[in-house]
């Protein structure tokens, strides 16, 4: 029997599925998600990340250090397409508070000058992080993927399990059918072991200065990305890896480039265009 446990944490809905008799871990996982929110959220002024962003430098705990290193490794590997220093560009686009508040209150009218590509110096032995002056970190998606991977590692000890942190999924132990929103229809992917994530501009959108904005910033411009891609869903070895690949592919620009890169690198991908066309690549038939 599959047990389901859902709650809200890290600014999104989290869902735990466990195909096991002992589900006592589910409550512990929820508590751990809530604790990680106090470490990694940029929307909580008292979080460890917010304190680092405010001070520009400081000693951080091992979890924040690990996620920052993961994000910086992804930036290096993606040639800068994935960039955790887009914080101010996201804020400049209008995403300056939790999405629930943004929808309720509306975006402000005074955009700031977007800045991306800031330097981050890490002294791992000392646990000290220094941000380049004027830059702050946004670990949003990769933090959720990392938390999902971490939760799965615990849950999977009790049996087949799946962790869904607002669309960033980590699964193990059996085939898990997962729906992918695909234009007017829906595709179901069966994931056995690994991760899945979706990046897109179909959600987390708002209007600023009369223009529709979204949260996916193109580091090349510091502005919300353009192109004809609506969503990119990717399967990978883990949720955090899928998150990075989905965002990296989304920021490739137009749908043709996304498909070429996914095909060339063998990344299982479901792409939905603005026109509602559904395109598959990377080994999916």
């Amino acid at each position: 029997m599959i047990h389901r446990h859902a709650f809200t944490a890290m600014g999104t809905e989290v869902e735990l599925l466990a195909d096991a008799d002992d589900v006592s871990l589910l409550a512990d996982i929820e508590a751990e998600f809530r604790r990680l929110e106090t470490v990694l959220s940029r929307f909580r002024s008292d979080s460890e990340l917010s304190r680092l962003n405010e001070a520009g430098a400081g000693y951080v705990g091992p979890e924040l250090l690990e996620v920052i290193e993961l994000a910086l490794a992804a930036r290096a590997a993606s040639g800068g397409r994935f960039d955790p220093t887009v914080h101010d560009a996201v804020v400049a686009a209008g995403y300056d508070r939790s999405f629930e508040l943004l929808v309720a209150e509306g975006a402000g009218a005074t955009p700031e000058r977007p800045r991306v590509g800031g330097k981050v110096a890490i002294d791992r032995a000392a646990g000290h992080v220094t941000l380049e002056h004027g830059y702050r970190l946004d670990l949003g998606g990769i933090a959720k993927g990392w938390a999902a991977d971490r939760a799965l590692a615990v849950l999977a000890n009790a049996g087949p399990a799946l962790v869904n942190a607002g669309g960033d999924l980590a699964a193990a132990g059996r085939l898990w059918p997962i729906a992918v929103g695909a234009g007017s229809g829906e595709i179901t992917l069966g994931l056995v072991d690994g991760g899945m994530a979706t990046s897109g501009r179909d959600r987390r959108t708002w209007v600023r200065d009369g223009e529709k904005r979204h949260h996916l910033i193109d580091p090349a411009t510091g502005l919300p990305a353009g192109g004809d891609v609506l969503t990119v869903t990717v399967a990978a070895g883990s949720a955090s890896e899928a998150e990075v690949l989905a965002k990296t592919l989304f920021l490739a620009g137009d749908s043709q480039r996304v498909l070429e890169e996914a095909e060339r690198c063998g990344i299982p991908t479901v792409l939905v265009t603005s026109a509602g066309d559904v395109l598959l690549a990377g080994g999916l038939p």
Binding site: I2, A73, A74, A77, S78, G79, R81, G140, G141, K144, G145, L162, N164, G166, G167, D168, L169, L175, W176, P177, I178, A179, G181, E186, I187, T188, L189, G190, L191, V192, D193, G194, M196, A197, T198, S199, G200, R201, D202, R203, R204, T231, T233, A235, A236, G237, E241, A242, V244, L245, T248, L249, E261, A262, R264, C265, G266, I267, P268, L284
Partner: peptide
Amino acid sequence: ALVALVSGHRKAAPSVRIVTLPPLTTTRTS
């Protein structure tokens, strides 16, 4: 090279395919 660098960090190739089973959960823009 750009995406190969990213995919080079893959821990393992995922086992994934299209199925016709009723979904147990949904992935969406996070």
